[in-house]
Nucleic acid binder design. Structure first.
Lengths: 345, 345
DNA sequence: CCATCGATTGACATCGTTGAACTAGCCATG
DNA sequence: CATGGCTAGTTCAACGATGTCAATCGATGG
């Protein structure tokens, strides 16, 4: 790579003048500007961003810390964030934390100082850890949970969404509604799992329905995948409890559950209605198609980047803000029926 | 953030001595080392990687350019690469190209100079563009296609894998085997789509079976998703052609196809056998479970990083290498049957 | 004709770190 | 005792850009 120095020599001007041209500063005559531009083109010069960063202290790289990528929800979120970041002229560095609070903290500690900002989907992070994270780098958390730390937050309406699912099922006449994906594993409260469980209970209460503990199946958040969904459903069936609907706390859990129900000879939704969360692409192509809550990923990405951008430019921004994205319940065959047309495969 | 300078002053030693301690160089007495270590701890100093990069020219950041993340195959690949990179002490920056050759080239041009190396899954890249990419940064392509450029390559056995799938189906007695996912859209040859089509044809030939053109459905590689799989299957059915098996060129295509077949009242595999490629997690939880080719993602990630690391450390490495990962055919219900136990939902 | 002004341009220090070259002290050797 | 070789440490320049401030120049006005 050629440097500004070489460009300057070739154009017969000083280093600083080249810098001026490159940065589009005003005080350069048209003649010199052209000389310099020509030299830049001839040498195929492009400014060394590392040197520039060192000098200016500005960094156009932001981190995105996610528990994992292989869950469709997270890869969709990552894509949305990357697209949005591009609009802000930012590059995104994805970090995987596995949902481990130590890893979440370590990400910020290790990479924070070299990032302009950090977007994190925290799972295990404690208040104190969150404070620590925010010390290293301007941070926006994608979490409904309030933290005692100077961070902004963007969240989906976990509680409201779960409540809406239960209300939807209740309105269709289902009365023994099970939950799949509760997680009491010593984690901070206000995680997605906690909030969705709370919303589920809200919904039952409002519908005047029972909430028998045996209908709540635990699945550790870190294991929200098809395997665990299928296994959790199997456990629920094996308890012998009677139920006619299942609210899974994520679509992949629901898709796993569908599989187990079908293996068990139970028809969806004739015998058991099923709904999930996240509205991933698969929900439209499963068998049957899956009722789900769309968490507004695009909006989350947009708001998160707006907040982060603010904080990056104005470190001492006044208040910490919380933005809750709009959600939407999309009802499909797994609760509504309409399977007749499919033939009895 | 505190700097080495402050650490040096606090420890009462020179800048360089601090640098030595930080980098674990030998010529430091135990006494001074401890003084410096203490000062580092007190000030919570961590070296500024931007300055270090500028000085050493070494960069521990590598790029991973993928068409997209939301396909399970790519997110799984990304996770594998990130895990492997960590073992090498490297950080991964993911870039999305959308499979557009211009974007693939732009990624290298924009980010290449600031990356230690680049791992790319090329889709549209031409020879000349590949040469250009490699000029910007040490590059390893994840592609079976040979490029006239100084790049190493890691590939899966696309052609062999497809051939094995057809052989598998032929051995089970299927004779009219369709293909879903061919892509003749003016792209360079040797893409996954081309190779899998070639393997499919190899398999048919070896089994002594016909290869009627109406059984080959096109789906542009950029659209390999459930939607397109379902639509492609629909088109195939609508042609009225008779077939008893479908080899889809990716699992998501196959999963979409399953949906359409079920809608059409066709039983899998009793009426039509289905198989896919990639062996994504979903293949084990679909209905029915999906026969697929496991492309050896872990091995690909491992080999790719080994090659890249070599090239980063020894820019003028001798020959360009090609490593083809081992594949494995995993037969499941979509070709083998065993659905009886499921009940007739 | 000289002082002043606005518009360009350049010299130099600087960001935080590391590599090269050098020095001070100490011990062993002949 | 002079020499040389080692160790532990220092000083200085450099990586490639940008910010600060001063210098230059032609033109203008008195």
């Amino acid at each position: 790579m050629s440097t500004m120095h070489e460009v300057a020599r070739r154009a017969g001007v000083s280093l600083k003048t080249v810098s001026r041209v490159v940065n589009g500063e005003a005080a350069v005559s048209e003649a010199t500007r052209q000389k310099v531009t020509a030299a830049i083109a001839e040498l195929d010069f492009r400014p060394n961003s590392v040197a520039r960063k060192l000098r200016t202290g500005r960094i156009d790289l932001i981190g995105l810390a996610l528990p994992q990528l292989s869950q469709p929800y997270f890869s969709a979120l990552a894509e949305a964030v990357m697209r949005e970041a591009e609009r802000h002229g930012l590059t995104v560095l994805i970090e995987l934390t596995g949902g481990d609070p130590e890893a979440e903290l370590a990400t910020a500690r290790e990479h924070g100082p070299h990032l302009g900002g950090l977007l994190m989907y925290p799972v295990g992070l404690s208040d104190e850890q969150a404070r620590s994270v925010a010390r290293f780098v301007p941070t926006v958390l994608m979490s409904e949970r309030a933290y005692d730390a100077p961070v902004d937050r963007v969240a989906m309406a976990n509680r409201e969404g779960a409540r809406a699912l239960v209300a939807h099922m209740a309105s269709l006449g289902y009365t023994r509604i099970a939950a799949l994906g509760a997680d009491h594993s010593g984690r901070p409260e206000h995680t997605a799992a906690h909030l969705r469980l709370a919303g589920y209970q809200d919904g039952l209460r409002e519908a005047g329905l029972d909430c028998p503990p045996e209908l709540v199946q635990e699945v550790s958040t870190a294991d929200w995948n098809r395997h665990a969904g299928a296994a959790g459903m199997r456990r629920l069936i094996d308890t012998g409890a009677s139920f006619d609907a299942v609210v899974a706390f994520s679509d992949v859990l629901a898709l796993g559950a569908l599989r187990t129900l079908q293996e068990a000879g139970l028809r969806v939704p004739a015998d058991v209605a099923v709904a999930g969360f996240d509205n991933i692409d698969d929900a439209r192509y499963s068998y049957p198609t899956l009722t789900s809550v769309e968490p507004g990923i695009a909006q989350i990405a947009r708001e998160a980047l707006a907040l982060l951008n603010n904080r990056m430019n104005d470190a001492a921004a006044a208040e910490n803000r919380l933005i809750v994205a709009d959600f939407e319940l999309t009802a499909r065959e797994s609760t509504l029926g309409g399977m007749a047309a499919w033939g009895g495969a």
